[in-house]
Design a protein around this nucleic acid. Structure first.
Lengths: 158, 158
DNA sequence: TCCCATTGCATAGATTTCTAAGTATTATCC
DNA sequence: GGATAATACTTAGAAATCTATGCAATGGGA
């Protein structure tokens, strides 16, 4: 992902200038987080797509593919592809549930479990670097605001 | 893009629980913004990829592909593909610069210019909906914090 | 002036994501 | 108990993105 060249704010309110739009600011921040995360987990042979699933499975192992899709926020076909790559990399095993043979449960391998502490450390470090120079109070306002924005948008149907 | 099922915060600090991590919150918000934007510009036949380029060109028409790539924050091959689709949709013309025949300048068509006011309105409305119920002071802290986070991360090389 | 590095764009191929439709298993209802 | 619906996953195909490489035009130094 390339770093972005920032446009100067034109100050023309009628134009709805990007640099003051929340959505725009969120996109930029998101890209910055992704870029760094991607670069730092790559040495472990883990991609960003895999990261999201690991993150959930480290907390709750043995979920079905459908449950995983919902928690990670990806469509099921995407999950199939991601899990396939994780199986190839030896990060997960897929086990057909005995009580309901439609379900496939996903379990972390020992390898994936060993990566946990280190990779969560990577994420924690990125967060610290992002928050550097910001006061606790500011961060708490930030969290409240962005959570509310997400909730506001999520509740809109169309 | 599917809506995400949220995990409850386990409260286990050692686990670095997602719901309190800035990066996590930013990702969720980003997805919410994208989902809505995508849905609302689709009726105009504009995709999210095209949107970013329109946004820049509405401000500064006639940029080269390289300049556009930098401002939008995409790699040049991605720009080639996006611009090709925009040309097919009649949103832009590509004109080889006379003084330097390597450069291709990108100009908006009348159609794209006509879409400007309406589509910027769509973006503005999404912002308003996202910010609903939040105080000016909170929003201003939010903007300062997220801008600083992006700057913090962008300045890290590795 | 001519060679070679630089610049601007394009192509090739891989990956990741989506939507739409298909298959296998289980549950429901008469 | 058997037809039908619902559920869980998979496949197919398109779009968008990246990295690596190639091609054409330009510029700089001997």
């Amino acid at each position: 992902m390339p770093r972005k060249i920032r446009q100067r704010n034109t100050g023309d309110a009628a134009d709805f200038p990007p640099p003051t739009s929340s959505g725009y600011l969120v996109r930029d921040a998101h890209r910055a987080f992704q870029r760094l995360l991607e670069r730092r987990i790559a040495p472990y042979g883990v991609t960003r797509g895999q990261w999201y699933f690991l993150r959930v499975l480290w907390t709750t192992d043995g979920l079905s593919q459908r449950e995983l899709s919902a928690r990670v926020g990806m469509m099921e076909p995407t999950t199939v592809i991601a899990l396939r790559s994780m199986e190839r990399s030896g990060l997960i095993r897929r086990v057909r549930a005995r009580d309901d043979r439609r379900r496939v449960q996903v379990f972390l391998t020992a390898k994936a479990k060993r990566l946990r502490a280190e990779l969560l450390g990577v994420a924690r470090r990125i967060t610290e670097e992002a928050e550097h120079g910001l006061a606790i109070g500011e961060l708490s306002v930030f969290r409240r605001v962005i959570t509310r924005m997400t909730a506001n948008l999520d509740q809109i149907e169309k």
